[in-house]
């Protein structure tokens, strides 16, 4: 695995001067993942915060080739790029290895872009799809998505007098990707650069479709001080609200927190969950804790027992 000093010798894939919010996690996802590639990369991005804020004409923050097509089609668009690359390679017009990386937010990945993503994964293109997951449609102003967790306040499922934010549990896209039987699926956070860059390095070392679902706190939509972005991501991991794990050729490898913290430690610092701490919502909080525990248990059961105790 490349050390930080080594990574720091590589060309930064993003320049400053983009218009993401101060403390935004999305460019951190991009930098940590793309810096892990020792080979050149080509990027496709779905419409979303990342795309809009990094490419306001005539200013592009991308130091690597970048293509934006539309919202729901990053998977398909990258399929076309990769197919053309394979064609040129076959014809001897190009020999350089390139890592193809598609970025989409959770809206563009869990919801509107799910079909395009699924198709790209099923067809086996040699690409890495990265979901920078901030658990709502942040670009349009914090609307609920299939990735929004239960109880979160969003502008299309707001907390009100008779409602406590999102009613449904979020769907488990990472497991949907695992079910595609692709060679590598990872779920991670931006609060642990060494884990994330290692996962990205692994993804880039594997030929075929790879999927990474990276939790990326959004200071605007989640409501917290901008300097807490990485800290909150780590709390999601430490409470198992967002398990960190990878599945390589069907084999699960789970990162376990030293001590599993109560989920309220993760929820409490966020404005989007503030209403849950009003008197009368204790049952809902208990419900969220129970679901986190259930899903964590279910995930642990997927990991094959290992020889010895070493993790």
């Amino acid at each position: 695995m490349a050390s930080l000093k080594e990574l720091a010798t590589r060309k930064d894939p993003l320049t400053g001067g983009h218009r993401m919010c101060p403390g935004c996690g999305a460019p951190i996802v991009v930098r940590q993942i793309l810096l892990a590639s020792k080979d050149p990369v080509v990027v496709v991005s779905a419409t979303g915060c990342l795309e809009v804020s990094t490419t306001i004409f005539p200013y592009s923050a991308w130091n690597v080739p970048f293509l934006h097509n539309a919202f729901e089609n990053a998977g398909a668009t990258m399929s076309g790029v990769e197919a053309a690359y394979q064609n040129f390679k076959k014809k001897g017009k190009i020999d350089q290895h390139i890592n193809f990386v598609a970025f989409g937010g959770d809206g563009g990945t869990y919801d509107i872009g799910l079909q395009s993503l699924s198709g790209a994964m099923e067809r086996g293109h040699d690409l890495t799809y990265v979901c920078y997951n901030n658990e709502a449609y942040m670009n349009t102003g914090v609307q609920r998505s299939g990735a929004t967790p239960r109880g979160a306040n969003t502008t299309t499922e707001p907390a009100g007098k008779v409602s406590q934010g999102k009613v449904q549990w979020r769907k488990d896209l990472t497991e949907i990707m695992v079910a595609h039987n692709i060679p590598y699926v990872a779920q991670g956070i931006i609060g642990n650069w060494s884990d994330l860059t290692r996962k990205a390095e692994k993804a880039f070392s594997i030929r075929g479709p790879k999927f990474m679902n990276i939790l990326q706190p959004c200071r605007l939509g989640w409501g917290y001080r901008p300097d807490a972005t990485l800290e909150l991501a780590r709390l999601a991991f430490e409470t198992c609200a967002w398990p960190v794990y990878e599945v390589e050729n069907g084999v699960y490898k789970i990162s376990k927190p030293k001590e599993k913290k109560p989920v309220i430690e993760y929820l409490k610092p966020q404005d989007r969950f503030r209403h849950l701490f009003k008197p009368g919502n204790e049952a809902l909080l208990a419900d969220i804790q129970a679901e986190v525990d259930r899903r964590w248990g279910q995930l642990l059961a997927k990991e094959a027992p290992r020889q010895g105790s070493g993790q």
Binding site: T15, G16, G17, H18, T54, I56, F57, P58, Y59, S60, A61, W62, N63, V64, P65, F66
Partner: peptide
Amino acid sequence: VKGGTAAE
């Protein structure tokens, strides 16, 4: 555009 112009 040429990449990286946002630096300006």
